[in-house]
């Protein structure tokens, strides 16, 4: 992806509550399996919204409902200030979407694919196709058949396809899939630029680090329900981690010393051999931790503090996928002991 020439400022269309997208009580079942269980999302206008959740949590189902590919069993969707119901397909004229893998006619070139896709939905000028090919860095290969494209190139083309109508609301499902590092950086910059110009970017991803550097607001779902939503900075400010390193033989003493500062479940030894302990406290408490240890005659040889979306994610989602979902990895300890999977230390 290269220049930003394909992006124009949005005249934001939002609801009275300033939301570009809102779902209320969204429900969807596949047979007896409930994929969405009363999902309430509030996506503010003009932000990059990171939509997170473990495998099988309902992210893709949500994207499918929001793009009219499937229909919800219940609940409401409001898109760009207006209700989006079954049959309201014209609402999607102002929406761009890449749901799951990008799809194209393999025997057509990238340019031809975009031109033919532009014949559906909202009218698009042929100039726009050229702008987007330039934006995603496919100009040199635009006349090659898509069947010869790498996964990353198809992904770039998929992003270009989602931007065809110069959408006010852009919904992308795992947009970084297959992109090389340079492509990921360019994609991130493009999405941020879109949000800066008043457009709303809704990104579903499992790459937490990517979302952490890109999103303004995040929503985390588990088992088809929203478990946390809000500005990323606000969420992370309550989710600090202070890591302190002491002599390995003093780990137990250090934990006992820090007990008054944090409850037991927020105090963990992360590496006994190296003497690392994690204390989940806001980062401004690092000094208190150091002082407390020093007061007990335990001197830290290392102290780090920061915030971590991954930790927040694991805490909120239980560190595993839902029962009956797409499956979950289990800790080695759980495999050995027959204990249920969890967010344990893997002892």
């Amino acid at each position: 992806m290269s220049a930003m020439s394909g992006i124009t400022a949005a005249s934001a269309t939002v609801g009275a509550d300033g939301l570009a997208l809102a779902t209320r009580g969204l429900r969807k079942s596949y047979g007896s399996r409930r994929a969405l269980n009363g999902l309430d999302l509030s996506v503010p206008s003009g932000v990059v919204y990171g939509f997170l959740g473990p495998n099988g949590a309902g992210k893709t189902t949500t994207m499918r409902v929001l793009t009219g590919l499937i229909h919800a069993d219940g609940g409401t969707v409001e898109m760009l200030g207006k209700p989006f119901k079954r049959g309201d397909r014209r609402r999607l004229f102002e929406v761009g979407a890449l749901v799951e893998a990008p799809t194209f006619y393999p025997y057509l070139s990238a340019r031809a694919n975009l031109r033919e896709l532009a014949a559906s939905g909202a009218p698009v000028s042929s100039k726009r196709v050229e702008e987007l090919l330039d934006l995603v860095g496919l100009c040199d290969r635009a006349n090659d058949k898509v069947q010869g494209y790498s996964m990353g190139m198809k992904q770039r083309l998929g992003i270009a396809a989602a931007l065809l109508s110069d959408p006010k609301l852009l919904m992308l499902d795992e947009p970084a899939n297959g992109l090389d590092p340079a492509g990921i950086v360019a994609m991130r910059d493009t999405l941020k630029a879109l949000a800066a110009q008043g457009k709303t970017v809704f990104v579903s991803s499992h790459l937490l680090a990517e979302i952490q550097v890109m999103a303004d607001v995040v929503g985390i779902i588990a088992a088809g329900k929203l478990v946390r939503e809000g500005p990323l900075k606000e969420l992370l400010s309550t989710q600090g981690v202070i890591k302190v390193r002491v002599r390995p033989n003093l780990v137990d003493a250090a934990i006992a010393t820090l007990a008054p500062l944090a409850p037991a479940e927020r105090l963990t030894e992360t590496d006994r051999d190296e003497g690392w302990i994690s204390v989940r406290l806001t980062t401004d408490r690092a000094e208190d931790v150091n002082q407390k240890l020093a007061g007990a005659g335990i001197y830290a040889s290392g102290l780090e503090s920061g915030t971590d979306l991954e930790m927040l994610f694991l805490e909120l989602t239980g560190g595993r996928g839902p029962t009956g979902g797409e499956g979950a990895f289990v800790g080695l300890g759980a495999l050995n002991n027959g204990a249920p999977a969890g967010k344990g230390t893997g002892e």
């Binding site: 793009t67 009219g68 609402r91 004229f93 749901v99 194209f104 896709l117 559906s120 939905g121 909202a122």
Partner: peptide, 22 residues
């Protein structure tokens, strides 16, 4: 069949195209 197996119908639908018309 290819509209389904290649997913190109999906792309048109997400652009707001009428399924029946398509």
């Amino acid at each position: 069949g290819s509209e389904w197996s290649w997913g190109t119908l999906k792309s048109a639908v997400t652009r707001g195209e009428s399924r029946v018309r398509y």
